[in-house]
Design a protein around this nucleic acid. Structure first.
Lengths: 193, 193, 193, 193
DNA sequence: CATGAATGAGCCTTCATTCAT
DNA sequence: AATGAATGAAGGCTCATTCAT
């Protein structure tokens, strides 16, 4: 049982660090965030930090991986309620909510300069692929159901949609911005001729 | 005459540094690029670097400003040939060409973590505004001419278009990517109902 | 207990650095002494230096503050044995001993160019005031006791004495210099008409 | 004749640089004054500066030497009017006037850290010796005339006087300070028993 | 497990000095 | 003689990471 408690404690602490790291990366960017500052924010010593993450970069990978998992779960959950255009819009709606997080806008940029490092690139690619597959799958279904235009391949539409959403995310800088706009824009992009 | 020669030499050298800085920022990001490395790449001494740019950050601002000016010229030139949808597509086409530059994709991200600094934010805002105004202006004209949908305000369409293009730029990673796709996507977004 | 040991170790190390800094500032002056050189002399790494003193200037302030405290203690001790002329001469005698330190003469000058910085000026003023007050107080007493001239205000005499002692300190350059002379000079300055 | 004009121009310029250097050394100290800043202040290029002074240190030596010559002249002039205590007091009076120069106090300290370099030490020693000889000579005369105490050797009295004056100079920080005090202090030091 | 003192490579920047024009 | 662009050694300081306790 001690084992269980320990593991739980371990997980909790790990997540506390991750959460603080996310916040600071979002505010200041990866390179300009020091491990010391994360430690201070998380109320731990540098020794502890490096006990949980052998490297500062590993903490970033942790944050990104955690995000990937959340995205995976979110997409899963969405498809539970059925697919098609509804699923795509539900995803866009979720993104819109995320963008309301004051840290989100920052974090989108936080990865800069490190995104080329293989470990980071891998997670980023995985997430990108996950989303594109989700979009392709559901846009296919939507096209089949006549909900959206059928004269352009779902593959293309998925890519375009991803562009649109990523671009919007990049512009996000505050809670009140771009409220329902994103949804409208997606509609505009996909509507049948 | 010596004066003219000097000024020319000065400008040339300045631009050589700027160009090398652009390349390295794009590859490694601002923070992970050292001034020493730029000097090495440009074949100059550190002293010379700081003779031209009082600060590493000033070099970045220089790069961004230079980009802003190029954009301004490009947009000017485009509007010389008339406005409307044609102008917007010409701009997208230009972006596509830029995206073929192997460094472009990287540079889009290079600014992260520094983009909050006032000097940088100013240039970035200026460029963003320049483009949005260009888009708004020409989408207005296009709407008036019935080239694009008229049931959504040009302001919104401009923002959406900018999202789309920024998102595409963000995904750019090499010369062969996303060839003419961008144009198609813009068409899809703007076409009348 | 570990706490106590740690604190002791911390203090010891801090003082070792301070002592090395004092030596080098005295020999080469503040600006011409590099932190690297202090580190070398103290057998520590640059990281350690900045762990103890956030700034090179803070090390100087540390040295000065430490000197101020020593002076405070010395003056305290002297007045324990009674005041008046005897105390003033005891102080002069102490200065004479200090001047025998081969580094003392140098250090008097080491502060130049930095003495205008507020942090440094504060400590220097404090020390100057401490001494002038000590002198004024005891010269008052001495005048009251008829040990020294009573026709000039103790305030003036204190200032003059401080001039004399500072001037002598400034000239100090080695152990064998100006042996008991200082005492004689003070006597000459203060003797009754 | 062209030769003469050139030489005059050369001297003028040299003195302009020296004067600017003096001012800046006094304000910021030797090490914290950059040659570039002197050039700016003197309205010349760095090339010109190094044409007149092969080294920054040479400029300092120039300033000091110039000061030495002025002192020599001043002392000469004073002795023209006769020697003895009057001459000593005239010198003290001159010092008092100099101390009114807002830059003087600073410059006294400016030399720090460099005063150990042979070139500088030489000039400084020369000046110190010049003054001590002057004092010794005239205090001898004064003692012979019964103007001052005769029970202490003029050599000692000269040293003490120099201490007093140097100490006062060190404390000088502004035009209104220590007005006639110095003279009084010298009197106090030298008066017969 | 946790701590935080210690490390040292590396960074940005300054500045005296040189030299081609 | 005068200029100022170019140089590069040196300096102060930061920060990810290690390790003894």
């Amino acid at each position: 049982m001690g084992r269980i408690v320990d593991e739980q404690r371990h997980t909790e602490r790990r997540e506390a660090i991750l959460s603080e790291a996310y916040r600071q990366f979002a505010v200041s960017g990866y390179d300009r965030t020091s491990t010391a500052s994360i430690c201070r924010g998380a109320g731990i010593s540098s020794g502890t930090f490096f006990h949980y993450f052998p490297t500062k970069l590993d903490a970033l990978v942790g944050v990104l991986t955690s995000g990937l998992q959340q995205t995976r779960q979110a997409l899963s959950l969405i498809e539970t309620d059925g697919g098609g255009l509804r699923a795509v819009l539900a995803y866009a709606e979720g993104l819109r909510a995320e963008m309301a997080d004051p840290h989100f806008g920052g974090f989108v940029h936080a990865v800069s300069g490190v995104e080329l490092l293989p470990e980071v690139a891998t997670v980023l690619d995985d997430e990108s692929t996950l989303i594109r597959d989700f979009l392709t799958r559901n846009l296919s279904e939507a096209a089949a159901g006549g909900e959206i235009r059928g004269d352009v391949s779902p593959t293309h539409l998925a890519l375009w949609t991803q562009w649109l959403l990523d671009g919007a995310a990049q512009h996000a800088t505050g809670p009140d911005q771009a409220a329902g706009e994103v949804i409208d824009a997606v509609h505009a992009l996909l509507r049948p001729p």
